[in-house]
Computed example of a mutant assay.
Amino acid sequence: MKTRLNCPCGEHIRGTDEDDLIEKTRAHLAEKHPDHDYTRDEILFIAY
């Protein structure tokens, strides 16, 4: 299960599980990178 992601902007995102990580990543993207839209699979591909 992947629960961490490092955004290229330097933000480190950590979730309690994959669903939480996706939710937190999408919130970060909406706030900091509104022109970027990634699917669940794309987010998990760069997560670890």
Rank of each mutant, 00 (worst) to 15 (best):
D20N: 11
T3N: 12
H36G: 02
P8F: 12
E31P: 02
R26T: 04
M1T: 10
D35L: 11
T39E: 08
A27G: 13
H36Q: 13
T16P: 00
Y48M: 12
K32W: 03
Y38H: 11
G15L: 04
L29D: 04
E23Q: 07
I43Q: 07
D20H: 03
I43C: 05
G10V: 04
T3R: 14
D17W: 07
H28V: 02
E11N: 06
I22K: 00
E18M: 10
P8T: 10
D20R: 00
L5S: 01
I13N: 03
L21E: 01
D17G: 03
D19Y: 09
E18L: 01
E23N: 05
T25N: 00
A30N: 15
T39V: 03
E23L: 08
D41G: 00
A30P: 13
L29F: 13
H33F: 03
Y48I: 09
A30V: 10
K2C: 09
E23I: 08
G10L: 09
R40H: 06
R14N: 14
Y48K: 15
E23R: 12
Y48L: 11
P34N: 14
E11W: 02
E11H: 13
I22W: 07
H33E: 09
Y48S: 15
R26I: 06
R40F: 02
L29E: 05
E42S: 04
I46L: 13
K2M: 06
A30T: 11
L21K: 06
T25C: 06
Y38N: 05
Y38A: 04
E18P: 00
T39W: 07
L5A: 04
A27P: 05
F45T: 14
R4C: 09
H36D: 12
F45Q: 15
G10D: 13
K32T: 12
A47L: 00
M1D: 12
I43R: 04
I13K: 04
E42D: 13
H28R: 05
N6P: 02
D37N: 14
I22S: 01
D20V: 04
R26W: 04
L21H: 05
T3S: 12
L21A: 00
G10K: 00
Y38Q: 08
A47P: 02
T16F: 10
A27R: 14
T3E: 10
E42W: 03
R4A: 11
L5P: 01
G10Q: 12
R14W: 08
E11G: 01
Y38V: 06
L29Y: 06
T39I: 07
R14A: 15
L44G: 07
I46T: 15
P8W: 12
E18R: 13
R26G: 02
E42K: 10
T16Y: 07
P8M: 10
L21C: 01
T3L: 14
L5G: 06
K2G: 01
H28T: 05
L5H: 01
